[in-house]
């Protein structure tokens, strides 16, 4: 019989192989997929975020945990869709135009996904119109913009302006982050929030979407 509680440990320890095996076994035994997510997977990623914030975990551990979580989620997601379960929120995320740095954005995307959000990752060097298109198509309620260079930070402002021009600004919250980005800059460009790291981004997304 599957020991679902071990799903928590496999994710925290970044063991994708065992995370998938336990999930398969649990589902074969008719475990509730939503319970697997809410009782084990989201708390596991919350713990990973906590360890990352207090510098017990670093980027490799976070990416390994995210890979384990995603492996399990691939098995679970079709079942959740089947029963019409809604995610905590829909997030469109990307590194802004002109910037190819994506590891910070990937960490945030993984943590948001682990936190129960549906995440549409547009990748790096994303033009403002691509963000607009994705928000419209996916009915997103959060947009996350990342930049690593001071020279590409203005693309955040351009992207917010594009969301405004498209009449979408009222229905999405815009969060910004990246090494050179500050709360002051977020305020200047009219973003709804700034997060210093991946764990803080999840907390902020939960707060602004009232999850």
């Amino acid at each position: 019989m599957a020991d679902s509680a071990k799903l928590y440990d496999t994710i925290v320890n970044g063991n994708a192989k065992d995370a998938v095996a336990i999930t398969k076994e649990a589902l074969a035994e008719n475990a509730d997929p939503l319970e697997l997510v809410t009782r084990y997977m989201i708390p596991a990623m919350d713990e990973v975020g906590r360890r990352f914030e207090c510098e017990d975990y670093f980027v490799p551990e976070l990416l390994l945990a995210a890979r384990a979580m995603k492996g399990a989620m691939e098995l679970i997601r079709p079942l959740l869709v089947e029963r019409g379960a809604e995610p905590s929120g829909r997030v469109v995320i990307g590194t802004v135009k002109g910037d190819l740095h994506d590891i910070g954005k990937n960490l945030v995307a993984s943590m948001l996904e682990g936190g129960g959000f549906e995440v549409v990752d547009l990748g790096a060097d994303v033009a403002p119109e691509k963000f607009v298109e994705a928000v419209e198509q996916k009915s997103a309620n959060v947009v996350c913009l990342s930049a690593l260079l001071t020279v590409t930070m203005p693309s955040m402002k351009t992207t917010i302006a594009a969301l405004n021009d498209a009449g979408l600004r009222g229905r999405v919250k815009v969060l910004v982050g990246g090494a050179p980005v500050t709360q002051q800059y977020a305020d200047e460009i009219g973003a709804d929030g700034y997060a210093e790291n991946a764990g803080a981004a999840v907390k902020l997304a939960r707060t602004i979407t009232k999850v």
Partner: peptide
């Protein structure tokens, strides 16, 4: 690739 390298350690 930085993302891949981070997993290679493991």
């Amino acid at each position: 690739g930085i993302n891949t390298l981070m997993l290679d350690f493991y």
